[in-house]
Design a protein around this nucleic acid. Sequence first.
RNA 1: GCCGGGGUGGCGGAAUUGGUAGACGCGACGGACUUAAAAUCCGUUGGGGCAACUCAUGCGGGUUCGAUUCCCGCCCCCGGUACCA
Length: 836
Amino acid sequence: MDQRYNHKEIEAKWQKRWDAQDLHRAHDTSKKQKKYLLDMFPYPSSAGLHVGHPEGYTATDIVTRYLVMTGHEVLHPMGWDAFGLPAENYAIKTGAHPKKTTEDNIVNFRRQIKSFGFWIDWEREVNTSAPEYYKWTQWFFLLLYKRGLAYRKEAAVNWCESCKTVLANEQVVNGACERCKNPVVQKQLKQWFFRITDYAEKLLQGLDTIDWPEPIKRMQRNWIGKSEGATIPFHVMQSTDFVRSRDSQSSRMGIVGTVEVFTTRPDTLFGATYVVLAPEHGAVDVLHEHITNWSEVRRYRERAASKTDLERTDLAKEKTGVELQGLKAVNPANGEVLPIFIADYVLATYGTGSIMAVPAHDERDYAFSKKYHLPVREVIAASEPQESQCYTGAGTMKNSGKFDGMESAQAKWVITTFVKGKKTVQYRFRDWLISRQRYWGAPIPIIYCDVCGEVPVPEKNLPVELPTDVDFLPTGESPLTQSKKFHDVACPSCGKPARRESDTLDTFVCSSWYYFRYADARNPRAFASKKKMAEWLPVDLYVGGAEHAVLHLLYARFFTKVLQDAGYVDFDEPFMKLKNQGMILADDGQKMSKSLGNVVNPDEVVAEYGADTMRMYEMFMGPFEDAKPWNTKGILGVRRFLDKVWQLREKINIPTSDVRGTADVPTLQADLIRLLHQTIKKVTEDIVHFRFNTSVSALMILANAFAKEKHITRKSYKEFLKLLAPFAPHLAEELWEKVDQSANPLHPKGSRSRDMESIFKHPWPSYDEKLIAEDEKEIVVQINGKVRARFTAPADASDTDLQQQAFAHEIVQKWLAGNTPKKVFVAKGKLVSMVI
RNA sequence: GCCGGGGUGGCGGAAUUGGUAGACGCGACGGACUUAAAAUCCGUUGGGGCAACUCAUGCGGGUUCGAUUCCCGCCCCCGGUACCA
């Protein structure tokens, strides 16, 4: 007999047969309970599939097959996040058109993913770079535009010199471009934004309603960065006025302006010893004529503007600033006259772009005050003595006039009211910059007309197709401007000559809605029909890497909330449950990378060991959500296990399917049945909880037990195959078929035909708790906390029985040496512990 | 710096309403088969000790009859974030 199964033959056979039977189709009209399982769709890179891709896909595939076998109709689709920079950069290098290279890569990716035999409904495949898809991406842009959520404005934006395009804040990593790692600079440009900040509160609150990993939720909360505080007005005066007249009445005459500051600590207002504006703050320009050291101020502003984000944060350790001479601010709480600075530790983009500085209770202000010798005044007394001169906690008010003695938490809002400040909520994140000066993306459907201004492309004219007569070299202007045919159009509103917007959409716009499309992937009249969305959405389980914590996952939630407000869907969270897969590292523990030459090619693994082996190995490596190193030797162990399963079929030689107690069946059978039922329970629970590594282990334990037997029953083997089927579907199908073909001369053909159906048309095994319970247990005796003896006792033995048996034990007698223990504890069915 | 996750054999990892630490797999060692090797099968495998025992879940304390699990204080690694007032 063959000791090893022929994976090439078996896997090809079943993949073909499943396709022919349309087994993996998700039926919209099915009456079964519906489930929607989704993998983050891949970017079809030229490098081909990474071993990390099938890790997530196998997990969803296992759950899909399990759900199918437990009577559900499951949608598990796949598609391509096909727009993006790599294809365009490749085009710049080689001249190959992105459309062509992307199509080639998709063909390769599809072949690779299919080689794993995943339960995927390929009829629903989507490709974001296809006009029939991006037509709807453009439609979404128009929807947001109509709802006032898409706008164009000139602002300081992140600019990557190397990619020659702007970037969203979410795409700037440590002050550098996420893609090319070059430093990002600030540029004043007119760009398109989505008003995602309008949804800050909803995006925050929705997190409480979804089953996502806590770290991801926390990252989103931090990214949104809500803080409650107050805006407080400070009058600005010319300092000369103070010299002339010190009494506050007449000094009022000198007011030249007002600066609003945002603070989360209005309770510390009496401790403010200066005011700081961001270098870019508009008041600096407005008050220009009153500033007596203007050239110094101008120089500082220019230096701050030329810094990259990276430099600005790098130099952050040493704070810098310049006083605005000639101007003073008035503390509204006590009338004190304070100096005003500009300093780049205050950000123009957050709050009001200006702060009141309270060195005694803020670390940054404290550092600045030390450098420029500014006074520090404590106004909050800590309940315990502090080492540092800067105390940022809560406490009792002091040096604060009539508020002395009040608790700071309460004083906050009392003082805010006292100085006519406003309670204010601030969010850290900013609107989503969505325009890109690049070619390989969906064109923004807007036309600029000299007469009508900004005109949205009418829906009936969608899609606005990408032109092909362009050169890809990035110039800082979108390549689309080169195509006259594309660029010069008639205004849809007045018909006069007009220009098309030449920027394209951030690819994250394309991926913000693709999960809706799968519900109705070929619909030419809508992004998806309401009816079909109602059948499948929201997504029950979403699986992918954690790197999208604040990018894709935040944007997709935003889109869904907009769709709900617009009445297209009746839910506001797209992904009910989220699981993050851990990264698969190279065997040296490092990230797999071409430059290190440690990349494992899935094609080679599938060719050598088979898809079932690779699937199962990736599940066995370790906890799904942990990072884990690849070990080629470890694959061998899984392959040995599957070969063992293959050989087990030889042990079925009992003609009738399930007779117990025949001469051939040893007494061990009861133990085996118990183990089988324990395994059913374990595997079922582990699949539901994404503990695939321990379910594989449980399957191995059962197979090992079977292998020790001379014979096993057909029924128990078939139950085992069903448990194996989600993990190793090809082999399970093959053996399922084989076991039936070899069956059972006693049974007529009729009963055979049903069993001949795919194993996935059969119900998932159930277990019987009564059969799982052991009737005898091993009891451990601990003496002074250490295990000294063990004995077996009936599972239902009473505490006294157990105690008595323990005392009677030879070794225990020796330890007791005739004495009685001081204390005895019994843990039922587990142990007896005594102190002597 | 701040926030989060984690440190268990030679390796990947099991086991936590506190109750036999090391399941399962890899590797290693010994044996069978083979002219030989591979493959396969059987056995052993945390350290120390002939043994009785003893040490051991990052380090140091604590609570407990009993701690990988709970508490306090450190160290190290990984991920996120970066002056957000």
